[in-house]
Design a protein around this nucleic acid. Sequence first.
DNA 1: CTGTATCCTGCCGGATACTG
DNA 2: CAGTATCCGGCAGGATACAG
Lengths: 135, 135
Amino acid sequence: MEETATETVTAPADLPFDVFSKACPSRGTLEHVTGRWGSLTLGALYEGGFRFNELRRRVDGVSEKMLSQTLHALERDGLVHRDARPTNPPRVDYSLTPLGREVAERLVGLIHFMEDRMPTVLAARESYDTARGAR
Amino acid sequence: MEETATETVTAPADLPFDVFSKACPSRGTLEHVTGRWGSLTLGALYEGGFRFNELRRRVDGVSEKMLSQTLHALERDGLVHRDARPTNPPRVDYSLTPLGREVAERLVGLIHFMEDRMPTVLAARESYDTARGAR
DNA sequence: CTGTATCCTGCCGGATACTG
DNA sequence: CAGTATCCGGCAGGATACAG
């Protein structure tokens, strides 16, 4: 059932996908992954499985609509697995696919790095603002 | 502009910055970095220094306005260095700061990974679409 | 609880014109 | 070349209601 990423080492020579070209489908996927809610959703799911409303609470500020949309896009791209149980009340669990986990791992690394360097960023901003705002 | 949140929000660990809280300034910076044009701009600059219009050509599809905006945001966050020479004709070079380089490195890793796995993603999409669209 | 459907507004972002 | 200023259309995305 879990027909997952089978370690396809396809096309290491020439790059058929170039995200810098606006016509390339990889750009769309990159935007799903790095988008405003996509990155946070993947980051949250890296911590474990979540139900819909748990995810909503974890990703502070996301609306039902956008969370639903985001999850669908990520599921379609094969990054998120959706497990719906036909119980009453309904229960749906979201988790990462193996591919999704690899992506999320990189994302989480970036997120932690940014969080860690925020003091530097904030200092840069202040410096920038005083230099610009003063004249 | 977003205001600095002095309010301490629930952090999972002892980290002062939690991107999952909507009030945290780290979320704004993450969005600059991972945003539609931010990620591609940092990715391009990872290859070396660029002038404004070189960058415009490299990042296919970006408008003058958005490139300008993106560069300003990244410069303000201390990720991009802007070197303007008062020559005639004017020449402005953009490059990464050390911090920007570290961020871009992770971003480029993610981008390459996504490009590499696009066949898997495309297959997942097709599978998803046939399952959903067929009924 | 887990979502879709609908409406509506703000702002993202493209086009154009202008400046130095 | 390297930008800013302005206009404005489209759509991202929030609020609400409702369905299963």
